[in-house]
Simulated assay, not measured.
Amino acid sequence: MVIGDGSLATVLAHYDVSLPDEATDVRFHDEESLIGSEGTLFLHFKVSDAGLTSFLQTLSVGPLTPGLPAGWDGRKGQRFGWSFPGSSWHGAQGPAEGTVTASVAVARASGVNSVYVIAEHV
């Protein structure tokens, strides 16, 4: 299932994000900035451990560490169902170099990783 605004392929290409082949329950929102940047992508999907490892490598974010990424602002994501209860989250952030930077938050339940991504043009 894919739920979002616009074409998923077009949005992913714009932010230089590649989903793992086995990603399920994909939901996304592409928010254009009012100050002239090229927008922000909010992305959620579920994936196995192998798919998560591949995704993190492709996105060039650092290793997952306990807690949410530094400076993480998931409040905007609450509009479309994101919530971050408890303390079982792990997070990673991409480098501040290049054209797109990403922050990733992951929670694992019943052998499946629930992955939340905020990708922004810098």
Rank of each mutant, 00 (worst) to 15 (best):
Ile3Cys: 11
Phe42Tyr: 15
Arg79Lys: 13
Pro66Met: 08
Ser114Leu: 03
Gly71His: 05
Gly67Ile: 10
Glu32Leu: 15
Glu22Trp: 09
Gly51Cys: 05
Thr99Phe: 13
Glu22Asp: 12
Ala13Ser: 15
Gln57Glu: 13
Thr99Ser: 15
Ile118Ala: 02
Ser7Arg: 09
Arg108Cys: 04
Trp72Ile: 04
Val61Leu: 07
Phe55Thr: 00
Ala119Lys: 00
Ala23Ile: 10
Phe55Arg: 01
Leu68Ile: 10
Thr40Phe: 09
Gly6Glu: 07
Arg27Phe: 09
Glu97His: 13
Ser37Gln: 08
Ser103Ile: 00
Val106Thr: 02
Leu43Ala: 01
Phe80Asn: 03
Glu22Tyr: 09
Gly71Gln: 06
His44Val: 06
Asp30Thr: 10
Asp73Ala: 09
Arg27Glu: 10
Leu43Gly: 01
Ile118Val: 11
Ala9Lys: 12
Asp16His: 13
Trp82Arg: 05
Thr40Ser: 11
Ile35Tyr: 12
Thr65Tyr: 10
Leu41Val: 05
Asn113Leu: 06
Val117Tyr: 00
Asp5Met: 13
Asp5Arg: 15
Trp89Ser: 01
Gly71Met: 05
Ser18Asn: 12
Thr24Ser: 13
Leu19Asp: 01
Glu38Tyr: 04
Ser33His: 10
Leu19Arg: 02
Glu32Val: 14
Leu56Phe: 03
Pro95Trp: 09
Gly39Arg: 05
Lys76Cys: 08
Gly91Phe: 03
Arg79Cys: 07
Arg79Thr: 11
Ala102Glu: 01
Arg75Met: 12
Val112Leu: 08
Ser48Ala: 11
Leu12Asn: 01
Leu52Lys: 02
Ser110Asn: 13
Leu34Asn: 11
Glu120Leu: 08
Trp72His: 06
Pro66Lys: 06
Asp5Cys: 07
Val115Met: 03
Thr24Asp: 10
Met1Tyr: 14
Asp49Pro: 02
Lys46Trp: 03
Trp89Thr: 00
Tyr15Phe: 14
Arg27Ala: 14
Leu43Ser: 02
Ala105Thr: 03
Ser33Tyr: 10
Pro85Glu: 09
Pro85Ser: 09
Leu64Ser: 05
Ala105Pro: 06
Thr53Val: 11
Gly94Gln: 00
Trp82Gln: 06
Trp72Met: 06
Gly39Asp: 05
Ser37Cys: 03
Ala107Glu: 11
Ser18Pro: 09
